[in-house]
Amino acid sequence: MTAFYPPDTKPSQKSRSTGRGGDRAVAFLTSSAGIAIIVTVVLVGVFLLWQAIPSVMADQVSFLFSREWDVSDTDDLRFGILDLLYTTVLSSVFAMALAVPVAIGIALYITQYAPLKLAKPVAYVVDLLAAVPSIIFGLWGIIVLAPVIQPVATFLNSTLGWFPLFGDGIKSPGTVFTAGVVLAIMILPIITAISREVVDQTPLLNKEAALALGATKWEAIKMVVLPFGKPGIISASMLGLGRALGETIAVMIILSKPAPNADFNPSLFAGGETFASKIANNAAEFDSPEKTGAYIAAGLVLFILTFVVNAIARWVINRRKEYSE
């Protein structure tokens, strides 16, 4: 190393050490931030496992496949997550099905179609949605939205009622359907914002290539803009899904709790409880480690579920990596 510099031009030790000191400090700060987040995730996982395992071991029914949930007797814990898993996944996937097409539509409108004067306000209003607290969404959903979308639910039920998803449900407006629509609105801003960003990055050069080949605007969007934005739109959707899976307060306010031991109803128009709403609804019951453990076990499944969703998203994105420069 020293031979590299002629003796008289070798940088002075002093100036070099100053530069390195700064480098070291920044390297330390950034790597601690990086390590901290990994440690946090691992610790959360360890905490959940440590709290959950004793209760799951003491569970008298199948934790994964039972629909029962009765933890009042700590010597006879009976809890299974099947219903929670179903309601959580159903409401979130339904919310995604509604939100993703609309989000892509808004993103395309803002970036490709809207006149500049309109694009900014529209983007701003969508972003503003993200600032509404979820408790407001919950109240608004059950009081204002539910009666408005009731006719849609009735229509779906009467025309497609033979399909279990649209079968008969409950009279109350607190259905998975209502919760899903509210969740869709709640995850719309994040999906829209990220989709808009990635779609907007489409190189003009590629769009021009499509147009010069004789593509119409929509064809150019299909050929260039959407394929280019696809990985980003998928990650955006998964982020939205993650948020929908874990949303607590709004879902808790909206969903009607089914009566204990009620029959399983797969319909969107039934009530139910998600992992998050179940835990929140029963926060008052955390009076013994056994009971608490049961709820934490449910939380652990939610944790794993969001993890799996993110892993799948990564996998989908990486599969086409070589095509996305």
Binding site: P203, N206, L211, A212, L213, M223, P227, F228, K230
Partner: peptide
């Protein structure tokens, strides 16, 4: 204009193959 562009091909300043294709 779309019909015109189908008869008049264009090659651009920087190579721009469709990156996803």
């Amino acid at each position: 204009p779309v019909a015109v562009r189908r008869d008049v091909g264009m090659v651009f300043q920087r190579p721009n193959p469709f990156p996803t294709m």
